[in-house]
């Protein structure tokens, strides 16, 4: 707006700038510094060079295990959740009368997110004699030891997060609904089958949203805490001991702030590298018509 001083806008964004400096930028740098220190909250942080990182990568078996289960968790949960969300969105994107009813039913579990009550619910329905095993037995199968068996426990948490596919689905659905219908008609007249239309028209047009969901879900999955903390406490045999749990224990139970910061930075580095790869590769597979999204 014309006559204003060029600093007026700055006044309005000032709260954000203060918050950014105090609660994001400063802690970000401080945690990087702390990761090179030994700090138990009682005495001053003591600079120890690369010791924390050396210990992490050479002597810490718990870290190896934790990193491994974190990667397995992320690389199963994110694809499963996104494929399922996209599949349901495609099925839902049709002239169905009940579209809103279905959308609501699917969205409810994800709106409850990381709530403790939902984790409680999961403990009960996947208990040895819980709802899921009762259903399996009723169908003639054999009950599964969901949380007691290290082979299954992590997957049970994956199932919890896949159950909450709703918000990814709503975003997919909004994108599908904005695809120009005349493209479908033109393709159908040219004799393209439904699968061909999906692959060559729908999928390329919604790649920006796929990209968005992929990044957000990955960043979030790497930080999963509530599920394993409440449902399995990281067990059995550390099979659900994701890195955020390890960081929490080191920082707030052992009060080893320096070491916890080092683990946090390794986790951060992994997320950054994957995000950068995604952004870099997006030039090759994400389609932008004009610049609709900014």
């Amino acid at each position: 707006m014309g006559g204003d001083s060029k600093y007026v806008g700055l006044w309005y964004v000032a709260p954000y700038v203060i918050g950014l400096a105090l609660f994001i930028a400063f802690p970000f740098l401080a945690s990087f510094y702390l990761s090179f220190t030994d700090y138990d909250l009682l005495s001053k942080p003591e600079y120890v060079g690369l010791d924390n990182y050396k210990k992490l990568f050479t002597r810490d078996r718990t870290f190896d295990k934790s990193l491994k289960v974190t990667l397995i968790y992320v690389f199963t949960t994110v694809p499963l959740k996104l494929v399922f969300a996209l599949f349901i969105a495609v099925v839902l994107n049709y002239r169905l009368k009940a579209i809103n009813l279905f959308r609501t039913a699917y969205y409810v579990p994800s709106i409850l997110g990381g709530s403790v009550a939902i984790a409680v619910l999961w403990r009960y329905i996947f208990a040895d004699t819980g709802l899921v095993n009762m259903a399996i037995i009723a169908l003639g199968g054999e009950g599964i030891n969901w949380f007691g068996d290290p082979e299954n426990a992590l997957f049970t948490i994956t199932l919890l997060r896949c159950w909450q596919f709703g918000s990814a689905m709503v975003i997919f659905l909004a994108a599908l609904q904005s695809v120009d219908k005349s493209l479908y008609e033109a393709a159908a007249i040219d004799g393209a089958g439904p699968w061909q239309i999906f692959r060559s028209i729908t999928l390329p047009l919604i790649t920006p949203v796929i990209f968005f969901n992929l990044i957000m879900q990955t960043v979030q999955a790497f930080q999963e805490f509530n599920g394993p903390y409440i449902i399995t406490q990281g067990g059995p045999l550390k099979s659900t001991y994701l890195l955020p749990l390890y960081i929490y224990d080191e920082a707030f139970k052992s009060f080893d702030m320096g070491y916890a910061s080092a683990i946090a930075w390794v986790l951060f580095a992994i997320i950054m590298v994957l995000t950068l790869i995604a952004f870099w590769s997006s030039k090759k597979w994400v389609y932008y018509a004009g610049d609709k999204r900014s």
């Binding site: 994001i24 802690p27 945690s31 702390l34 790497f222 920082a251 707030f252 946090a264």
Partner: peptide, 12 residues
């Protein structure tokens, strides 16, 4: 990721 800022935030 919040995980990287959480410890210094706590200290602050």
């Amino acid at each position: 990721p919040n995980v990287v800022t959480r410890i210094p935030q706590y200290l602050l």
